[in-house]
Write a protein that binds this DNA or RNA. Structure first.
Lengths: 337, 337
DNA sequence: CTCCTGGACTTAAAGGTTTTCGGAAACGTA
DNA sequence: TACGTTTCCGAAAACCTTTAAGTCCAGGAG
């Protein structure tokens, strides 16, 4: 820990100029002779001067800092969004103030005040699920962008993955492989994600004129449930040739149970997961075809739109971003692999 | 987005007092009559006044903000540490500026400058592995605490999990169950974590006068390697009755392969994992006994010690924090479960 | 010679808050 | 009345930087 930090005053004294000249020299402005600029720069380097962002922010009204308010950082989904956002900011000169409300509205309000008091230029709110969440933006002096979990208020700016479209894409992939007895195993119905993905399935099947094999099985987002569902399904609908699972956890459990029963994936039953959670999707046997929600892209996009909003060009509404089908061995056509 | 923000000046005018009095009233200082304080507080509430932290910080030299510098947020380990730290700070009035260097020294230097320029009160550096990393603290004007990945410089303050002790604890648990043919499957030897855990195993075995079953098998941190190692081990050392795995990923693969070969866990072979990564450890069959490194506690502890360092009471050295053995069914004694 | 132009630099204000110190009023005592 | 004490409040400085406005001087044009 070194001593007191150098101010522009020290730099100016050392260079033998006024602080105004020092400031201009350091900021690359005109009106300063080359030789003088040299002297100032040398002085700054010698003192390892770093401009005080507080003073600068106080004057300019811009802190080049944004707040990242998350409801549940532990969740699988907040992190990639956060990273994408941090990535977009890091490219410039922005910094990110991170706050985790732990799903508590009081704590969220508290953090909000703290962020506002620190004069952040903008705010990203990232949800723990795609369920719409109460707006936080009423009468806020800074722009807000919602990522993953959209705001209930449609005049806010929200970015969400296109779960419906992605599910349809996944099911179309199964249909293209010639599968016609397609079942669906997913998580709790109070998750909008579960409902949206089922909706996508329904649309794709309807468009192809194919009946869903059995009822949608709603459980929880776990391997255990995936295994259990597989056992039920193999009993109740033994003729199924494909399953679309609402998450990779479910899919991982599903393929495990199928394998154990002596049925083959993908030859007998093709399986598609969701999330592309690599610790699961690439480590099952066979590796899972799955939907990647491109969450880092989503986070980055949200950050970029926050920039735009800070510059006054907001884009209200709920924007859905495309997902991507990652094809692996759990849906290989017969003969391949 | 509302209009201009209220300053203490506006509050003072509205309350009919000077800004000095307003400041005193708002900060709960003496020297202000109860009635006057009421007026000021009412005015502040009406204008929804929030003190400008920049101005305050400029004056006091304290920003009540710390920097969190991580090398690899995506990693399994940085996140809980980060959460623990955020937790410790959130309890007070601290805020966290998050920076991810993506393992790039240049970028780290860049972020460091940005944080210093923003006048953070302190810094937490969290590593992506327990391998010691270059110190960042030379001649920094603020205190630094390292979490998970310690600094190479022993005069810095570092907090790391007690891998050696935890491994010994895990192996002692196996020994207490009567197991005597204990094998070890772990990750790449260039990870200090792998070497430390093996060291713990060795100590526990030596103390009990028991020989390790076969050589330590070093591979990668994946289920695939765990399965592969299990197959090798069941061939080469068919009489083993326990395995200590260097990670839950390896252990998950291991129990899967063992189960598939028709051997029973824990009756024939007891298995202990490492990390308590719940998506794996609680979802295998049987659920894994595993080491929990208490990373959130570690993060919280690091944050608390950073506070102490900010207050001038630093505690140099590498501090190892105890881990915890979470006992589940993969090591149940015969007859139980 | 005077006036103007432009370059190079300095002065001073502004931004919002806290804090120190001094001032004023009210009251009691001599 | 003169003086001291207490209580409450206000003026102003300080934190550090940027920038608008001003100063000074040299040199060129009229």
């Amino acid at each position: 820990m070194a001593g007191k930090r150098a101010t522009i005053n020290d730099v100016a004294s050392l260079a033998g100029v006024s602080i105004a000249t020092a400031s201009k020299a350091l900021n690359g402005r005109q009106d300063v002779r080359a030789a003088t600029r040299e002297r100032v720069l040398a002085a700054a380097a010698e003192l390892s001067f770093q401009p005080n962002a507080l003073a600068r922010g106080l004057l300019s009204g811009q802190t080049r800092t944004v707040g990242l308010l998350t409801s549940d950082s532990v969740g699988r989904f907040g992190i990639p969004v956060l990273l994408g956002a941090e990535d977009a900011f890091g490219a410039g000169e922005m910094a990110v103030l991170l706050c985790d409300a732990r799903g508590d509205a009081i704590r969220e309000q508290h953090h909000l005040r703290a962020l506002l008091s620190r004069r952040v230029d903008g705010l990203i709110v990232v949800g723990e699920s795609t369920n719409p969440r109460p707006s936080v933006s009423k009468d806020l002096p800074v722009p807000v962008v919602y990522a993953y979990g959209p705001s209930e208020d449609p005049s806010d700016v929200s970015f969400v993955p296109d779960d419906v479209g992605a599910a349809a894409m996944a099911v179309n992939h199964l249909l293209a492989l010639g599968r016609r007895r397609i079942a669906h195993v997913t998580g709790p119905a109070h998750y909008k994600a579960a409902r949206d993905r089922e909706e996508g399935l329904r649309r794709a099947l309807a468009e192809a004129g194919v009946q869903q094999a059995g009822q949608t099985l709603s459980g929880v987002w776990s391997q255990r449930w995936g295994r259990h569902a597989a056992e039920m399904l193999l009993m109740a609908e033994p003729e199924i040739d494909a399953v679309f699972c609402g998450s990779d956890q479910i899919a991982a459990g599903f393929v495990e149970a199928v394998r154990e029963r002596g049925r083959r994936v993908p030859d007998d039953i093709a399986v598609v997961g969701y999330d592309n959670w690599e610790v699961l999707s690439t480590e099952t046997r066979p590796a899972l075809t799955t939907v990647d929600m491109n969450l880092e892209v989503l986070g980055r996009t949200a950050a970029q739109h926050l920039f735009a909003a800070i510059d006054g060009k907001a884009t209200p509404g709920v924007h859905t971003l495309p997902c991507q089908l990652v094809i692996r061995d759990s849906t290989s056509p017969p003969g391949v692999s």
